[in-house]
């Protein structure tokens, strides 16, 4: 059973064992508009929590995607190269960015769960 956690920068992380899928939330993709390009990290690259892991671009905006937790890139979603629209169409599913091997499970504790994130969104306008 996987657990989903959220950051204040609107990344989600879905953890399954020691591997986690990272992407941006539906709220984030709506804010950006039509995504036209995603810059993904190299395989094997390691990030500390909060480091820039990817960049997502729409026509008039660009946003950095930060690693929600520390970890090593074990897979990137190469489908985004030819079909960046997947981020808009299915941000929680086919529009994922990277798979990370989580270095420190305890870092997940600082992130929001679904309900907390929903409450957080209500505070934004």
């Amino acid at each position: 059973m996987s657990t989903v956690r959220y950051t204040k920068d609107h990344e989600y992380i879905r953890v399954d064992g020691d591997v986690a899928i990272v992407g941006i939330t539906d709220y984030a993709q709506a804010q950006l508009g039509d995504v036209v390009f995603v810059e993904l990290p190299a395989m094997g690259k390691s990030f500390k929590k909060g480091e820039q892991a990817a960049v997502v671009e729409s026509v008039k905006a660009a946003s950095e995607v930060y690693a929600p937790v520390s970890g090593e890139v074990v897979e990137v979603n190469s489908e985004l190269e030819g079909a960046p629209a997947l981020v808009n169409e299915d941000s929680a599913g086919k529009g994922w960015f990277v798979k990370l091997r989580v270095a420190d499970q305890s870092e997940l504790g600082a992130l929001m769960d679904e309900a907390a994130y929903a409450d957080y969104l209500k505070t934004l306008d």
């Binding site: 390009f37 671009e57 729409s58 026509v59 008039k60 905006a61 660009a62």
Partner: peptide, 11 residues
Amino acid sequence: LTLSTREQHIR
């Protein structure tokens, strides 16, 4: 005008 995300007004 396209690919503006390379440019200063966005990046």
